[in-house]
C-alpha cells in the first residue's frame, strides 16, 4: 500500500513535470534554443496565481486562467525586448541571455513578494481516504488539470492552422519559411502557448507544495530531463519523460535522502544521453 501511495505522489509530481516539459520541448524545437528561464516562468505563473487567488480572493477558476494569460504575456514580452533582437546572433547567445532572464525574473519575484515561502490557502487540507490511500483534492485538480492541458495542446497542434505551422517549423524551419509560413508569427504563438502552459504548471506546483522564489528553478533540471527523455521538439515524449521522472524521484526517497531528488532526474537524463541521445520517442512523428 505504501508503494501505491508513493506512486500517487509520483504521478502528481510527474504531471507537473510533464506539462512543464511539454512546453519546454515545444519551444526548444521551434526556437532551437534551450530556454533556461523556463523554470522561473513557472515561478512567475505560481506567483501570478497567488496575486489573483490569495491576495485578491478570486475563485481558482478565474485565477488559474488569468495566471496563465499573464505569464503568456510576460513570456512574449521577454521575447520582444530581448530574444527577438538576439535571434540573429548565434543560438548560444540566446542561451546565455535566457540564463540572465531567469535571474531577473527570480529577483523580480523576490522583490515583489519577499524571500519567504507562501501558500495559496492556509489551514490543513484533509485528504480523502480511498481504500487506505490518502488522496488530497489538490492532487485530483493537478492531475485533472494536466490532462486537460495535454488534450488542449494536442487539439491545438493537430487541428489549428497555427498548430500545424508550429509542427512544420519544428521539423524544418527553412522548409516552413519557403512554404510561406510567417515564422515570426509562429514564434510569437510559441511563446504565448509555452508561457501559458508554464504558468499553469507553476500554479500546479504551488498547489502541490509552497510558493518560493526558487521553486521553479529547482524543478528546471527535471523539466529538461523530461524534454530530453522524450526527444527535443517532441512534446508528447516529454509527457512520458515527466511521468517517469516524477515517479522515479518519489520512489528514490525509499533509498536515498530527498535532497537528492534532482540527482535522480540527472541520472535518468545521463542514461538517456548515453544510450539514446536523440530521445526515446525520436522518429515518432508528432
Amino acid at each position: 500500500m505504501e508503494y501505491v501511495q508513493t506512486l500517487i505522489y509520483g504521478i502528481v509530481l510527474g504531471s507537473i513535470i510533464a506539462v512543464a516539459g511539454m512546453a519546454l520541448s515545444l519551444s526548444y524545437g521551434i526556437l532551437r534554443f534551450a530556454n533556461f528561464a523556463h523554470g522561473d516562468l513557472l515561478t512567475a505563473g505560481a506567483y501570478f496565481g497567488f496575486v489573483f487567488f490569495t491576495l485578491l480572493g478570486w475563485p481558482m477558476y478565474v485565477a488559474f486562467p488569468l495566471a496563465m494569460a499573464v505569464t503568456a504575456c510576460l513570456t512574449l514580452g521577454i521575447d520582444r525586448v530581448l530574444f527577438q533582437r538576439l535571434r540573429q546572433s548565434t543560438p548560444v547567445i540566446l542561451l546565455i541571455s535566457s540564463f540572465g532572464v531567469a535571474l531577473i525574473v527570480r529577483a523580480g519575484v523576490q522583490l515583489a513578494f519577499g524571500p519567504d515561502t507562501q501558500v495559496y490557502a492556509r489551514g490543513i487540507e484533509f485528504p480523502m481516504q480511498v481504500g487506505g490511500l490518502r488522496i488530497k483534492p489538490t492532487h485530483l485538480y493537478i492531475v485533472g488539470g494536466a490532462i486537460a492541458i495535454v488534450i488542449g495542446l494536442h487539439l491545438f497542434l493537430r487541428r489549428t492552422k497555427v498548430g500545424k505551422a508550429m509542427r512544420a517549423m519544428s521539423d524544418n524551419a527553412d522548409l516552413a519559411r519557403i512554404s510561406g509560413i510567417d515564422t515570426e508569427r509562429v514564434i510569437a504563438w510559441t511563446w504565448l502557448i509555452g508561457g501559458a502552459v508554464a504558468g499553469a504548471s507553476g500554479v500546479f506546483l504551488a498547489m502541490d507544495t509552497q510558493l518560493h522564489p526558487v521553486m521553479g528553478f529547482r524543478l528546471l533540471l527535471a523539466i529538461f530531463a523530461a524534454a530530453i527523455f522524450g526527444g527535443i521538439g517532441k512534446p508528447y515524449g516529454a509527457i512520458l519523460g515527466g511521468l517517469i521522472i516524477g515517479i522515479a524521484e518519489e520512489f528514490s526517497t525509499f533509498v536515498i535522502s530527498p535532497a537528492y531528488k534532482p540527482a535522480v532526474a540527472f541520472a535518468i537524463m545521463v542514461l538517456v544521453l548515453i544510450f539514446r541521445p536523440q530521445g526515446l520517442l525520436s522518429g515518432v512523428k508528432t
Partner: peptide, 23 residues
C-alpha cells in the same frame, strides 16, 4: 535580503544590455 534581490536584478539587466549593445 531585498537589497540582494535588487542587486541581482541590476546585474541581470546589465548582462542583457551588454549582450544587446556590446556583445
Amino acid at each position: 535580503t531585498q537589497a540582494g534581490a535588487l542587486r541581482l536584478l541590476l546585474i541581470g539587466v546589465l548582462l542583457q544590455v551588454i549582450l544587446l549593445f556590446r556583445p
